[in-house]
């Protein structure tokens, strides 16, 4: 079982953490103590929200940007799974 590299951990934990925090954790806090939705159907900002909509959007956006940057990093710097060297390693594990 290969250990993940630092960029992978950053993408998974920081990127995913920001998305989950912005969507789920802030959503739960808002449901309990703030506003159940950040805007009205007409697009008016609900000011009772504890976390301003801009801040929540930027939290989620930051997570998505980290995921996107990681995808570009993988393409630029890491050999893809299934490339020649990795294929040999997988084949040696088959008999286990």
């Amino acid at each position: 079982m290969a250990d993940r590299t630092l960029p992978t951990k950053v993408a998974q934990y920081v990127g995913g953490g920001l998305v989950v925090f912005g969507v789920v954790v802030v959503g739960l806090v808002e449901m309990i103590a703030g506003a159940s939705h950040p805007v009205t159907a007409e697009g008016q900002i609900v000011h009772e929200a504890l976390v301003p909509i801009e801040m929540r959007a930027y939290l989620i956006l930051a997570g998505l940007v980290i995921w996107g940057l990681y995808a570009l990093y993988r393409v630029a710097a890491v050999a893809p799974v299934g490339a020649a060297g990795q294929r040999r390693r997988v084949e040696t594990r088959q008999p286990e």
Binding site: G22, S36, H37, V39, G43, I53, A57
Partner: peptide, 10 residues
């Protein structure tokens, strides 16, 4: 979302 799509959550 920010112009009304998040009216039922994000």
């Amino acid at each position: 979302g920010e112009t009304g799509g998040w009216a039922h959550g994000v």
